[in-house]
Nucleic acid binder design. Structure first.
Lengths: 259, 259
DNA sequence: TGCAATGGATAGTGGCACTCACCACTATCC
DNA sequence: GGATAGTGGTGAGTGCCACTATCCATTGCA
């Protein structure tokens, strides 16, 4: 009951008291269509609402939060519905010890397909093992995370950019740095309940954040190295200039994109 | 003519002279099925082979390289076939000046869907503009790269982790660092032809590399902060320990994954 | 009374990355 | 001269996925 602005126009739509809102209002607040919410409930991404009648259920703030999380993982994180379900199953498992749940969630997030055995992959695994030892990392070289790294290195090798591995330590420096910051962030935030959720959010959305920043930094590095500072100003223009920058992006976007 | 080990068992299958190989051999070398190669040609990801007869075409090393690139972008980079076509169209455009092509390729790689207007997005855009000014980055705040960053920030905000923006500068430090390294790498590699390709590879596979490293670093940070060093050794075990680490991953993988 | 909205369920949609089936043809082996 | 495997090209089909449409009986509310 209550809350819907169309069903109950006399009630302030902004508050839902103790019961929560119905599906239409939840849809309105999150921008997710009603059929899609139903679909998520069916798929186990979202718990069902609390039934007050055979056909009246109410959704509270936790549903809204969860729904936003699902959309973020889907849209920004690029996870599949199945992957999200797996991760959230781990998140919701209040029985198991926290560290186990964290590990499982992390593994789920890193899991990739394997593919057939391959010389490049073997070499990449060795490079990963070297890296881990060189840096003294306390990680299992057979973990999904290490396998994902080996997969990326093998792909570089196969594509003729095997020399990219020379940048590995610089990349690792950067990764270490952000990982440390991530840890500190999460350590001061959620206590126990939202902890695993924080881990998932930080991992998935942090990836998106970092890659977006890297691309932006590419643009800047190009402009800086090859001189942009044309007639107008150096910043917030279309970045005219003479990029010609190798790895990075030449410019932010087409000249018209800034108009 | 020539090349096929079944069609011409008398010829060494490892060399293809001046003409190149036929589709079957290309398939064998890359592990991509013949129908799939045909599909890629149809979709414009791969140029057709050079016809010597109405139904005999030969593929050379450039085809093989391109095919491996496609698979890398698809499998590791997670790009769609349509996105790959767009990027490669830019790569192959030898008419336009290099810096324009680079910018276009970069924009294609960063392009995301927009979604409806949103308060969180507006705030995120402002945060991005702040960041850009604060760091003196020479980038257009309306570029796809900046929009992608705003999208990630907005998602964090919507999901209740708005405080994550406090880490933005640490993330930006790391991004700047790798971007600089990327630039130096590409500057010393390909001259002009492979330059744009290097940019694409570096951007896409570099992303995969960096995120894999971040996750690995999470595992290490957790183990380091919460102590793993159990009975056996600290490294290359299943990372037993007491992760309980917030943002990162608890352990490398399940105990059985190491067996 | 009337009607929008709800929970629930089944079936259908559109997109995507292939994959199959088929054709006429060719290269090579015997 | 077969016989056979392989080829380029094309249209149709497949399986998966994230929804979306349709329908139903029931309900809240004016």
């Amino acid at each position: 009951m209550m809350g819907g602005e169309l069903a109950r126009p006399d009630v302030d739509e902004g508050e839902e008291g103790e019961h929560g809102v119905r599906i239409g209002e939840l849809s309105r607040r999150t921008g997710v269509s009603v059929p899609t919410i139903k679909y998520y409930v069916r798929e186990g991404l979202l718990p069902a609402g609390r039934l007050s009648s055979p056909n009246q259920a109410s959704y509270d703030a936790s549903h809204e939060r969860r729904l936003r999380l699902v959309r973020a993982l889907l849209d920004v994180g690029g996870l599949s519905v199945a992957a999200i379900r797996e991760v959230l199953d781990a998140v919701d498992d209040t029985e198991r010890p926290v560290h186990k749940v964290l590990g499982e969630a992390a593994d789920r997030l890193a899991a990739r397909h394997v593919g057939e055995p391959d010389a490049a992959l073997d070499a990449a695994r060795a490079a990963v093992a070297d890296l881990v030892e060189r840096r003294g990392w306390r990680v299992n070289v057979k973990s999904p995370q290490a396998e994902a790294l080996a997969g990326a290195l093998a792909a570089l090798e196969r594509v003729g950019h095997g020399t990219f591995v020379e940048l590995l330590d610089d990349y690792a420096d950067a990764a270490e740095k952000v990982a440390g910051v991530d840890l500190a962030y999460a350590a001061r935030s959620a206590r126990r309940e939202g902890l695993v959720e924080s881990a998932v959010v930080g991992t998935v959305l942090g990836d998106a954040l970092l890659t977006a920043l890297r691309r932006l930094a590419h643009v800047d590095a190009s402009a800086r190295a090859y001189g942009d500072g044309g007639p107008e100003g150096p910043v917030a223009r279309e970045a005219s200039g003479e990029p010609g920058a190798p790895d990075g992006e030449g410019r932010g976007s087409g000249p018209d994109a800034a108009a």
